[in-house]
């Protein structure tokens, strides 16, 4: 029985010692080294657990020993159990950050002047260190993930809007704009030449107009002079007389033409009669035909008729040879 009690006691005590000593050891407590507690204030501590390591220049010099929100709720007070044989920087501050991507957080004593960009919490008590907590890596990755999602959305929309057809249209638009630009340039060049020519023409026309104006001025002066000298009145009077003469001449010509027409009608009727007589003569009818039975008379008569016909035709064609008109 006595031996049993000893063995049971050994097992129980050994297990308790292992559990307690192991826990203290894994939490970083060392019996051989003294510690002093330093406090720091943070606006937030992220996922820093109680007992996390505290490092100085990468060397573990202590452990987090207590995390509590301030009574007014504006800050978090963190106790740091540090080894007494470590000298902290004069402007020491505490930086809380993830030590890896696997959720283990730690605190590090840093020099505040070496980290001017960090917005350390300002404690009112000078004995308390200022602290700053670097945003959680998961928060940063979540933000990056959100940005990536937005970029993906934009890319999808661009992909939907910018199809092959759109690209082809854009290419055509660019080509068209190029062609239009070339044409505008050519048109501008051509217009510049035309404008230059137009300006030259205008210049020439202006000179001519000036000359015409001068001539017109002179002409008007001459006209004014003539008007003032009565020459025009004389010309107008002569013109009137000439017009009256022309009117009389026209009347005479109209009358002559009427008489000529009557003569021509008479000549026609005569010729008709001569033709009738000729047909009677050819047929041997009538007195004249019998008289002309003699061939001599007939030949002479026929000759006379031929000459008469020629005369009439010449008269038709050249009436002026036979009719003399005189105006003055």
């Amino acid at each position: 029985m006595r031996r049993n009690e000893v063995w049971v006691g050994v097992v129980i005590l050994l297990s308790v010692v292992i559990a307690v000593a192991g826990s203290f050891w894994l939490r970083g407590y060392r019996l051989t080294r003294g510690t002093t507690t330093v406090e720091a204030l943070f606006s937030g501590v992220g996922q820093l657990p109680d007992g996390a390591s505290v490092k100085l220049r990468g060397v573990t010099i202590g452990r987090v020993n207590g995390i509590a929100v301030e009574p007014d709720g504006t800050a978090v007070r963190v106790g740091l159990a540090l080894n007494t044989d470590v000298q902290l920087p004069a402007d020491a501050a505490v930086l809380i950050a993830p030590e890896s991507m696997f959720g283990d957080w730690g605190a590090e004593i840093v020099s505040r002047s070496a980290n001017p960009r960090l917005d350390f919490f300002e404690p009112s008590d000078p004995g308390v260190l200022p602290g700053f907590s670097i945003p959680d890596l998961s928060r940063l990755t979540a933000t990056a993930d959100q940005i990536a999602e937005n970029l993906a959305t934009i890319t999808d929309r661009v992909e939907v809007a910018f199809t092959q057809e759109t690209a082809e249209n854009l290419r055509l638009v660019i080509e068209n704009v190029g062609r239009v630009s070339e044409q505008v340039a050519e048109l501008a060049d051509a217009q510049i030449g035309a404008v230059e020519e137009l300006v030259e023409n205008v210049r020439t026309s202006t000179g001519e107009v000036q000359e015409a104006a001068a001539l017109a001025t002179r002409t008007l002066a001459e006209v004014e002079r003539l008007l003032s000298g009565g020459v025009v009145d004389s010309i107008v009077g002569d013109t009137r007389v000439t017009a009256a003469e022309f009117r009389r001449l026209a009347t005479d010509l109209r009358e002559t033409t009427t008489g000529l027409s009557t003569t021509l009608q008479f000549a026609d009727s005569t010729l008709v009669r001569f033709e009738r007589i000729g047909r009677e003569l050819e047929t041997g009818e009538g007195t004249l035909a019998q008289l002309l039975a003699d061939s001599t008379v007939a030949v002479q008569t026929q000759s006379a008729l031929m000459q008469l016909t020629l005369l009439l035709e010449d008269f038709r064609e050249n009436p002026g040879r036979y009719v003399r008109l005189s105006i003055f």
């Binding site: 049971v8 129980i12 050994l14 297990s15 308790v16 292992i18 559990a19």
Partner: peptide
């Protein structure tokens, strides 16, 4: 009740 935790702690260690 007493020995199971003790044995468990030893075993875990």
């Amino acid at each position: 009740a007493v020995m199971f935790p003790a044995v468990t702690l030893l075993a875990s260690a």
